[in-house]
């Protein structure tokens, strides 16, 4: 019995190690000089340097990419939340004969291959003169954030005890006040998770940004991927540093997202 326990735990530790080590190794490499990276044997002991981060942060393309990413992700998440949360509430609390169809429609947007959306949109934005602008990127990403917020928001609102809302109604709250003052605050924790998830989704988005931007509106993933495509004398340290920079915002949200997961399953087990 204890042998299988030992084996089982070893596999788990190994899996956990594999989950984190690649990123840790990248962070380590981001502090290395090029000569310490291009060694026949991987080095664990070396003199750390901040040059890579200084170079990455000092580059104009990275700074622009960062600003573009923040605006595109921030803007689309804001619109997605402002319009998506009320819609999710309406679906959860005022079911009608189309509710199932609406939910299926929102889900089915996820079936669309991104390339199938990006190609025609590129042509449309080109024709309208909005190609390679942040505005077109925000609008396109709204398709992602809005659908995600609605999809994850419906169960979050359904979780709010109906009795609380009834009580507020008895106290004279109108339907809009019930939403704003009662349902929204009670469901807040799950809803923050849903919004955070939508943010990570568009922050990480690559294909659409690649097709809809060429220079002005390029987002950080595109800039980072361009760095990774450099020729033979690859500046590995700089690459590692830019990947670390790109990965920080999603990693900061890992706690919130695991909370969302926990909430979702606590509801089911009730």
């Amino acid at each position: 019995m204890s042998v299988s326990r030992f084996l089982g735990r070893s596999v788990l530790y190994l899996a956990a190690f594999s989950a984190v080590f690649p990123m840790v190794w990248t962070v380590i490499n981001a502090f290395k000089n090029r000569v310490d990276i291009v060694t026949p044997t991987p080095l664990f002991i070396f003199t750390p340097t901040l040059d890579n981060f200084a170079y990455v942060l000092g580059r104009e393309s990275v700074a622009t990419g960062l600003v573009n990413s923040l605006i595109a992700a921030g803007g689309s998440v804001l619109i997605g939340a402002l319009l998506g949360l009320p819609a999710a509430y309406a679906i959860a609390r005022y079911p009608n004969r189309w509710s199932a169809d609406i939910q299926f429609f929102v889900l089915s947007l996820r079936f669309l291959p991104p390339v199938a959306v990006a190609i025609p949109l590129m042509v449309i934005w080109l024709d309208l003169g909005f190609y390679d602008t942040r505005l077109s990127l925000i609008l396109t990403y709204t398709l992602l954030t809005l659908a995600t917020v609605i999809w994850l928001g419906v169960p979050a609102f359904a979780q709010v005890p109906k009795e609380v809302e009834e009580a507020a109604r008895v106290d004279g709250y109108g339907p809009y006040a019930v939403f704003l003052r009662v349902a929204l605050p009670i469901a807040a924790r799950s809803l923050i998770g849903a919004v955070a998830f939508a943010f990570v989704l568009v922050w990480n988005e690559f294909l659409i940004a690649l097709m809809l931007t060429t220079s002005d509106a390029k987002t950080l993933p595109i800039v980072a991927s361009e760095l990774t495509q450099l020729g033979r004398d690859v500046p590995w340290g700089i690459l590692n540093a830019s990947v670390v920079l790109l990965s920080i915002p999603p990693l900061l949200l890992v706690g919130i997202l695991s909370g969302l997961l926990n909430n979702a399953f606590r509801r089911n087990s009730k």
Partner: peptide, 30 residues
């Protein structure tokens, strides 16, 4: 473990791709 297991999926795909591309590098990969 839950927290650690969530790390890979949260990473931007571009990051994950680069991290592993470098790990699989024939000369310098770990």
């Amino acid at each position: 473990m839950t927290l650690l297991f969530l790390v890979p999926v949260i990473l931007p795909r571009v990051s994950a791709a680069f991290v592993w591309k470098f790990a699989f590098h024939p000369l310098y990969g770990i």
